[in-house]
Design a protein around this nucleic acid. Structure first.
Lengths: 203, 203
DNA sequence: TTGACAAGGGACCGTTCGTTCTCTATAATG
DNA sequence: CATTATAGAGAACGAACGGTCCCTTGTCAA
């Protein structure tokens, strides 16, 4: 019982914080949308800030559980088609999963105000994807699927444009289909220029 | 006199809004940091929201004056070195100019709450740079400086990673030097793979 | 010198904020 | 059955919010 209510409060808080920010959200609205009265909330959290901190704790814990350990990495693709399919699958999940979208929006909004949000934002938006694809690309180079080059730079050049379009989807959801198509086009463009067979200009 | 005060109010509002957001900023603090009392502010603006709208108007007007017309475009570089130098100059300005940084942070924070901020954010962070470099790259292809390819896709692949690092500078200013170095490395990486001389895999 | 007006100061207004208090209903525990 | 802990309801709190009112000051034109 208590756990359910607490989780529902957190879910609603994530919803409202990600739309209007921490300062722009008030306890009355939050509890009202759960059908309770504001005083009841304080049976579960000692303050508004405690809700925020718990939410951040969960987001950080989730991130580390999901992306923190190397063994949680997806398998190295066996072909360039597989790389494209895996990429599109990952993007589709991250763009369509409501909770993940809200987490990104929340980090975007609060990154300048809260240090922990700031750090998590950099991981979410930049270094996390980069490190992941650095390992993937290094593995694909070993297999001869990609031309030899700095895998970290290649991963950065690959993930940053995709990340930019994911942000576009968060900002303008009606453009999601167009953005997904553009991501796929970009992936094909990227693969075309980095296949191992097109190695001619190497020293 | 009146104009000065109004401008100072707007400057302070930009400063506070970009740090704590619209909802997280209050009139008392804003006016106090200008050494005036809050009631005086209402001689210049009729409400807090009017300040916000004026700020947005100015940002939109500035953007269109600066990037809206094609003739305001920088000249097409005559060499790849020139492209790199021009890029680094542009990035350096955009990252070190305090006002521009604040505008970006403000758009980042408020993009989900205000439709006009949302639209301007997409232009600032994505389509603006993309269109600009589409024209530049098309011109460079005509001059034989870049290998023939879809200039829009190339521009997207070029500007999105740079934009991602600019956002990193906004979020973690202490990483600015590292980010600038990474941008330069990326530009060199990008140029290396897209020079006209390395055209071998074309059909 | 006077009148008009823009601009700032200070007290104050009603509202909303996060939070606390007290009370009741419920359900599990001995 | 009595007891105790839990969760919600409802009223109320002080503080902070955006905004208004009225008064004073400085400036410029007639």
């Amino acid at each position: 019982m208590a756990k359910d209510t607490k989780d529902m409060i957190l879910a609603t808080a994530l919803d409202m914080f990600s739309q209007n920010g921490y300062a722009g959200t008030n306890i009355r609205e939050l509890t009202a949308s759960l059908g309770m009265v504001k005083s009841s909330l304080y049976k579960h959290f000692e303050s508004k800030e405690a809700i925020w901190n718990t939410l951040l704790d969960e987001m950080i814990a989730y991130y580390h559980a999901r992306f923190g350990s190397p063994e949680r990495l997806p398998p190295i693709p066996e072909s360039l088609d597989e790389l494209r399919e895996m990429t599109m699958r990952m993007v589709s999940v991250t763009v369509h999963d409501e909770k993940i979208v809200k987490v990104r929006k929340l980090l975007t909004i609060e990154q300048f105000r809260d240090e922990r949000a700031r750090d998590l934002a950099t991981k979410h938006f930049l270094t996390g994807l980069e490190e992941m694809f650095t390992r993937i690309f290094a593995g694909m180079m070993d297999k001869g699927l990609l031309r030899r080059d700095d895998p970290a730079m290649l991963a950065f050049a690959y993930t940053a444009p995709i990340s930019a379009l994911i942000h576009l989807c968060d900002r303008e959801p009606e453009k999601t289909d167009g953005a997904m198509a553009k991501i796929e086009a970009f992936v094909r463009f990227f693969i075309k220029d980095n296949t191992a067979s097109s190695v001619e200009s190497e020293s």
